[in-house]
């Protein structure tokens, strides 16, 4: 593959992700509306407001770009760019079909998790640079939360890697031929659930969206942001969530493998189902408190994932 081809593919992938994410917001609004016995977007583009995401994006684009006078201008403008770029970078290493991946390296899983944890730096910068008390509290919360949840996240990610004996996504997918990792008794399911919980905490989703927490911290780290800069944070959140759903479908649900045929369609279906599950959680749970969140991490998830990883290792060494 030549580098020009690679760049072209990258641009297409970028465009596709942005478009998909835009429409995921529409999906979420419709889904939440059904859950709450409302109708949701309806009038902007019949039927069912299919133009709504475009209208939202346009509205945010033409809004006035405000930088608070007492903020740190450079960092304030850097933060939105940082979160979007770091959240998009992860997609380069994720395989979208059995054979196609933008950057094929044999340490894909490691690289992905390294990139994925960079986003919190952007959130922290945003909270600090805004020079707002709510934003500052939120930034500190985000830092504490993401750093803490990195541990169970990685530990549960390692279980599929141990099963497959590789950090390469392709190998992990190939190893799931016949039995997906979620079907491994106990170990697979625990790893799946802990990963999902930790990913929710990483992605600042309810019930762990403590850094946004609009009932306490108004809007948290993005309280001073408006217009397109705000949209960047929103975009980053959804890209992050999409990446997490995609990762779940690849690591635990067999990725492109499926009954009848194999291919990108299965990846899309599984990712969408995981995404809908996350939405379902979001729109039916209340928010936990920061001390309860930390307690859950250090006293439950971290020991559980450690033991789980040990069991996975034992299982592999006994059967291998």
């Amino acid at each position: 593959m030549t580098s020009t081809e690679n760049i072209a593919q990258g641009i297409i992938l970028l465009g596709a992700i942005l478009l998909i994410v835009t429409y995921l917001t529409w999906l979420e609004r419709k889904f939440a509306a059904r859950l709450q016995s409302r109708i949701g977007p309806y009038w902007v583009g019949r039927p069912h407001g299919w133009l709504q995401p475009i209208a939202d994006a346009l509205k945010l684009l033409i809004k006035e770009d405000i930088t608070p006078s007492k903020s740190d201008r450079f960092l304030f403008n850097l933060a939105p760019v940082w979160v979007v770029v770091t959240s998009l970078l992860g997609f380069a290493f994720l395989p979208l079909t059995a054979s196609w991946v933008l950057v094929n390296i044999d340490l894909g899983l490691l690289y992905f998790s390294a990139i994925g944890s960079l986003i919190v730096i952007g959130i922290f910068i945003a909270g600090w640079a805004s020079n707002n008390k709510y934003a500052l509290i939120s930034a500190l919360r985000a830092a504490a939360q993401v750093v803490a949840y990195e541990v169970p996240l990685l530990l549960s990610l390692l279980v599929p890697a141990v099963f497959a004996g590789s950090l390469d996504f392709q190998d992990i997918i190939r190893a799931q031929d016949g039995h997906w990792f979620i079907l491994f008794p106990v170990v697979g399911q625990i790893s799946f659930l802990t990963f999902l919980l930790a990913a929710l905490a990483e992605g600042n989703r309810i019930p762990f969206d403590l850094s946004e927490a609009e009932s306490e911290l108004v809007a948290g780290f993005n309280v001073e942001y408006s217009g397109m800069k705000f949209a960047y944070f929103y975009l980053a959140e959804y890209v992050h969530l999409l990446a997490a759903s995609l990762l779940v479908s690849i690591l635990f649900l067999g990725g492109p493998l499926g009954p009848f045929f194999s291919g990108g369609v299965w990846v899309a279906i599984k990712t969408l189902l995981v995404f809908l599950g996350v939405l379902w959680i979001r729109w039916s749970f209340l928010r936990v408190r920061i001390d309860q969140l930390m307690m859950l991490n250090w006293k439950v998830l971290t020991p559980l994932t450690l033991v789980n990883l040990l069991l996975a290792g034992l299982w592999v060494s006994l059967n291998g």
């Binding site: 016995s37 009932s215 979001r282 749970f285």
Partner: peptide
């Protein structure tokens, strides 16, 4: 519900049910 769960989550579901 809004106080506990925020306007962009489970809290708003309870809120809208109650208002219904």
């Amino acid at each position: 519900g809004l106080d506990l769960g925020g306007a962009l989550g489970g809290g708003s579901t309870l809120f809208l049910y109650c208002f219904r």
